[in-house]
């Protein structure tokens, strides 16, 4: 439990740093740190497959994508001010709400956990993916095909210009 708390604090702090960082590069790297911490959390929840995917895709691929996008649009990097004025009170309110909720909502979560319903049997991950959730694979195929054609249609203009 202490270990989980420690990891949660790392994720939250990394997320806050990603939001408040002045440079976009720092933001992207902080996001990667949050991803790595999340994958440690997934390992701790005894979900190694999901953790490996999180580590390789979210912490690896997505960070690379973000960094390349940042380097493409680097010129006006720091000139953009954030419009924090309107939302100045929001973080403090959120912090207060978090503290209050952590005291008051814990019993509610206990009642919610009273409704828990256990599954009929224990299956392996591969079994679930290929037998019980085979339509998800069709969904993954659909979304990958969609992504290919999106990239194709977005960057089709380049050759004409």
């Amino acid at each position: 439990m202490t270990y989980n708390l420690f990891i949660y604090i790392i994720i939250a702090v990394a997320a806050v740093l990603a939001v408040t960082a002045g440079k976009m590069l720092t933001s992207a790297i902080m996001l990667a740190v949050a991803s790595i911490a999340l994958s440690l959390l997934l390992f701790n929840f005894n979900a190694p497959w999901a953790a490996v995917f999180e580590l390789s895709v979210c912490a690896g691929l997505i960070t690379v994508l973000f960094i390349s996008a940042v380097s493409l649009v680097k010129k006006e990097d720091e000139s953009l001010k954030e419009s924090r004025g309107k939302f100045l009170l929001l973080p403090f309110l959120a912090a207060a709400a978090f503290i209050v909720f952590s005291i008051t909502l814990t019993p509610w979560f206990e009642t919610l956990s009273g409704h828990v319903k256990y599954p009929a049997g224990e299956f392996k991950v591969g079994e679930i993916i290929w037998k019980h959730r085979a339509t998800d694979l069709l969904g993954q195929l659909t979304i990958l095909a969609a992504a290919v054609f999106v990239i194709k249609s977005v960057f089709a203009k380049r050759s004409e210009q």
């Binding site: 997934l42 929840f45 005894n46 979900a47 497959w49 999901a50 995917f53 999180e54 895709v57 979210c58 256990y118 599954p119 224990e122 299956f123 392996k124 991950v125 679930i128 993916i129 019980h132 959730r133 998800d136 969904g139 993954q140 979304i143 990958l144």
Partner: peptide, 15 residues
Amino acid sequence: GNTNLAQALIITVIL
């Protein structure tokens, strides 16, 4: 007690 189902869902969500 449904960790494996959750893993399967998470893999899809990550993609």
